[in-house]
Design a protein around this nucleic acid. Structure first.
Ligand SMILES: NC(=O)c1ccc[n+]([C@@H]2O[C@H](COP(=O)([O-])OP(=O)(O)OC[C@H]3O[C@@H](n4cnc5c(N)ncnc54)[C@H](O)[C@@H]3O)[C@@H](O)[C@H]2O)c1
Ligand SMILES: NC(=O)c1ccc[n+]([C@@H]2O[C@H](COP(=O)([O-])OP(=O)(O)OC[C@H]3O[C@@H](n4cnc5c(N)ncnc54)[C@H](O)[C@@H]3O)[C@@H](O)[C@H]2O)c1
Lengths: 216, 216
DNA sequence: AAAATATAGATAAAAAAATATCGATACTCT
DNA sequence: AGAGTATCGATATTTTTTTATCTATATTTT
């Protein structure tokens, strides 16, 4: 029964690896390569080849026994699997230090994400431009989000304003929230949320380190 | 047989949830609460209570049937499970936009992480202070890391310098690398690496959104 | 041409994670 | 005091994920 926040997504670990495959494959294509084997991909990512094969199977692409996969096919298949063939437009809320970093991240281009505007509450930021994107007054979020037909919002405000900002996004018709705050948002059924908990990685690293030390 | 990068860590999903438990519990304690049930934690995190119970079991803490857990016990147990009772010191390499954000993140205090210095190659940054931490010349990394006895490094340099910087860290005795670049690092057996792929979250969000749309 | 090697795909097995069930304990409300 | 409800812990079950094995196909080497 439970409290049914977001519906469950399967193959999470595989999905999370897709961007790295995409990145490496894009690089390889730039270097003039045409085909690639799971062995090579696996070595690059410190995985077992069988893992890579299973992941790629998910995208529906098929390789050639004895040879490998066509890099171009893979890139297309992964993008289509992730729905990244059409660029998604997003707005960013909270142009603070994290928000600023995300606005300046060129990596997003490869991932079909285009941040078209930022919103903030700080008068000294409103009206300015950060990495070529205008910073609007947060009050205008519902109006502009709705007018621009954006459906993704990137949330980088201080924790105490997270829920309020999320509500405004939803009011403006946004239905996908990429949440970098420490708050578990309360949203209606039709809105999907992905929360990024940076400390999770630190937790994993700590445990790995401790384990390494223990066994020596 | 494979290429044995880092040894496998078990209960990854549980470990990743720990920091969020910790954060919420710390908040609750500040609000004067003494006990908590898995039902409450689960509702906060959009999980099933049974998931929370299993996660907490991992820390060795035991609750009281009919009542719940002592918040203080839980906090201690989680910190000890993650090895976060003793603050870990770390250096940050690459004081660019992401590095700057991480240097300014107060959340790390709660997670037992203390970034004691930054390193960069840009002469205009070297010698300056960012959020009270001095920025040193990258050339001094091996020497200083070794002298300061740091064993964690946070890597935020541009991709093309990632491997080189990692090598310098290792030369300075660092054996845990938190890697925010897009590069899969090549490191000796005794070094553990945790790579943070920000686009992974975006991939998950995209798939969630697509799934939600499909089923309507 | 034959042998050795590398590869994907299909299927099977093993391991891990998530979920369910149930009994015992404590609290709440009448 | 008793009924109803919430809770944890132990155990069992189900589902999902990871890993292995085996076969057919292509490439490379001899
Ligand atoms: N800095 C990091 O490295 C980091 C890492 C992980 C998570 N986070 C999380 O990201 C969030 C932001 O962190 P930060 O370090 O960038 O903080 P910050 O203080 O640098 O930036 C917050 C920004 O939000 C703006 N803001 C405040 N109230 C607002 C409102 N009501 N509407 C719109 N904008 C508003 C502020 O003016 C500021 O520009 C926090 O929840 C933090 O926990 C930060
Ligand atoms: N900006 C983001 O939001 C973001 C998100 C995810 C990942 N990343 C990754 O983080 C890394 C850094 O990104 P960024 O946006 O902060 O870039 P940036 O260009 O803002 O910062 C890079 C910093 O590294 C310094 N540097 C360059 N060469 C160096 C060297 N050899 N030794 C030490 N320092 C050196 C530069 O002077 C600069 O200060 C990249 O790999 C990027 O892909 C960034």
């Amino acid at each position: 029964m439970g409290f049914m926040g977001n519906k469950k997504v399967q193959k999470l670990p595989s999905i999370r690896r897709m961007p790295t495959y995409l990145h490496k494959l894009t690089q390889m294509r730039k270097n003039g390569l045409d085909t690639v084997s799971t062995t090579i991909m696996a070595r690059y990512m410190n995985l077992e080849p069988i893992v890579v094969r299973k992941d790629l199977e998910l995208t529906g692409v098929t390789g050639q026994p004895g040879v490998g996969y066509k890099i171009k096919d893979l890139i297309d298949a992964i993008k289509s699997f992730l729905n990244w063939h059409n660029t998604a437009e997003a707005v960013l809320i909270g142009a603070g230090s994290l928000g600023r970093a995300l606005l300046g991240y060129e990596g997003f281009e490869d991932y079909g994400l285009n941040i078209i505007a930022a919103f903030d509450a700080d008068p000294s930021k409103i009206g300015s431009e950060i990495h070529d994107r205008e910073v609007f007054d947060i009050i205008r979020l519902p109006e502009l989000a709705s007018r621009l037909q954006v459906n993704m919002g990137i949330l980088c405000v201080p924790n105490e304003y997270a829920q309020g900002s999320a509500d405004m996004m939803i009011e403006g018709g946004i239905n996908a929230i990429w949440n970098f705050t420490n708050v578990s948002l309360d949203v209606p059924e039709h809105v999907v949320v992905q929360r990024e908990v940076i400390a999770s990685g630190l937790a994993v690293l700590s445990v790995k380190l401790n384990q390494r030390i223990m066994e020596e």
